[in-house]
Amino acid sequence: MTQAEKNMDEDIAIRLRGIKTAFGSHVIHDKLDLDVRKGEIIGIVGGSGTGKTVLLRTIIGLKKAETGTILLNGRDPNAFSAEESRLSRQDWGVLFQDGALFSSLTVGQNVQVPIKEFYDFPQELLDDISCSKIRLAGLPMESAKQFPSDLSGGMRKRASLARALALDPAILFLDEPTSGLDPITASRFDDLIIDLRDALGLTVFLVTHDLDTLYKICDRVAVLGDKRILINAPLAEVEKFDHPWTQDYFNGERGRNAFNVSKLNMKI
């Protein structure tokens, strides 16, 4: 291995090699390779049923890959001891598609759960941190005392983001964060992700359908199809990529609109 390759390796936050996942005989991914660099926002796109969420769940260890290796920050999570595995949970935060907040806890308590799991902080500090994360995620302070069932879908999503950010993770996994949000809120959400990435150097693994989000915040886009990653490149290259689904997706009417809007924003 040359020095340059070694340096590149250290820059990789997530490395997947030869991943195969299946539900019974139904194969979702086969021989899938993917590299995500540290500090980049990668958008995972693909048609419904191509296994975007399954890929995310495989990386965070909720679903076991049949074959293949996963390296997070250069280490294989499957080789961790139980304690290492527990501690490694601080390194990533996950925003699930439907929020997955604990329904019997208030939003504030939900955000405090991961912090309490790892640190022994005085309650005053816990309240201060959880309120800040809730505000950071764009929720009003009052929602700290509310239960998830009292919140709207979009608010639940932001509360879930606040929880994912609780431990200042190095890698943030977002499963369709802007779906179901109104365009203004979605756009603020995008701004927030960029701000956090710039301030904290986060790596963001983003599963999304939202073309505006892709154009606005993603450094690279990986397209899932035919059970593997078809292309993993900056958006400009992906647009030109010769594959029917990719062409439909980016050069269809909605794709063109998002592209034009992003150009307009750049001019302003």
């Binding site: 505000r135 950071l136 302070m141």
Partner: peptide
């Protein structure tokens, strides 16, 4: 970038 982070946390805070 630290200023930015502080601004993020501070601007949005009202007890």
């Amino acid at each position: 970038s630290q200023e930015n982070l502080l601004a993020l946390v501070e601007n949005k805070f009202k007890r």
